[in-house]
Design a protein around this nucleic acid. Structure first.
Lengths: 167, 167
DNA sequence: CACAATCAGTTGCATTTTGCAACTGACCGC
DNA sequence: GCGGTCAGTTGCAAAATGCAACTGATTGTG
């Protein structure tokens, strides 16, 4: 088996971010998922697009299958050919990918236009993902959020999330 | 210096997700950011809360400072004490953390209630982050998104993002 | 003043993970 | 029967990570 116990077990942390990282907290894994969202399904296509070593790809795909993010299915018997498709659990990682994409467009793109634009077909416009409140629909800003319960050494007991430097 | 060239240079990939990962694509880094959003600012508090080795923490904080996600400032002269605070660039990673948190709540939480709930003070309700279209405000669903331009081997030329298994 | 404690690290070494390149093996088309 | 594709496996080297111990400035306590 491949998945040895990680030296630090993030899954034991009482935090969903840590547990998410336990599942996808790896550069190649996230890039595999990005490709999967773009429609890539086959081993050789992942390998060719990402330039990842095939042993690493084997390992990551296997872990993603174990964690039910991807489903491996044989779509051809002779010769045996497989494809890896997103499960529902995997599909729901799309917001994570979208928010990373948006951040990278703004902050890690050396001033050029975004390499990939998204069109929202239901309204017909080029769109950007905005993270909003499920209750009122307003954009979620850190200063309007309180986290409960959270007991972090040095953390803010008011639940207020940290604000940016205004030096 | 600590930050050696990574063997695979994600930043050269023509993809904002890859470039975002170049900056924060590391388990500890993301957990440091989570703590930073909760208001943690000092070395020993990060170390104590995360249980991370101090050499690793030194390395990650330094990289985050180099990349202008965190700002290091001395807040006390004698004894010298420092704090690490999110810059605006760092603040804008909040959506990534929020979407990870939401996914973890749903898919990696072994059926219990979320360990941390968020309250949206402007509307007064417990909220969940929803990723919506900047143009029409509707929730972004993969089947309503088209990506352009994208040239990935094996990718879907229609731009349609992958759909889940419906086996 | 001596002594323990806090904060912010550094150093050295062992373990683990990762990358790379080469190889396997089933099949297919010509 | 030869080259090409697909989906990997294997072995070895390089890099990242974890761990524990140590440094050094300072501060609070008796």
């Amino acid at each position: 088996m491949i998945g040895l116990m990680t030296p630090v077990d993030f899954s034991e942390m009482e935090c969903s971010v840590a547990r998410t990282l336990e599942t996808i907290g790896d550069r190649w894994t996230i890039l595999i998922l990005r490709d999967a969202f773009y429609g890539v399904r086959r081993f050789e296509d992942f390998r060719g697009d990402l330039g990842v070593a095939s042993n690493i790809l084997t390992d990551r795909l296997q872990k993603l299958v174990d964690r039910e993010i991807l489903e491996k299915r044989q779509y051809e018997e002779r010769p045996p050919r497989y494809e890896y498709r997103l499960t529902e659990k995997g599909q729901e990682l799309l917001p994570v990918i979208l928010t990373m994409m948006k951040w990278g467009d703004r902050w890690a793109n050396s001033g050029s236009t975004p390499p990939v634009t998204l069109t929202h077909t239901t309204c017909g416009h080029v769109t950007e993902p905005v993270v909003t409140c499920s209750q009122c629909g307003e954009e979620l800003r850190r200063r309007d959020l309180r986290a409960h319960p959270i007991t972090v050494r040095g953390g803010n007991p008011s639940g207020e999330l940290a604000r940016a430097e205004t030096s």
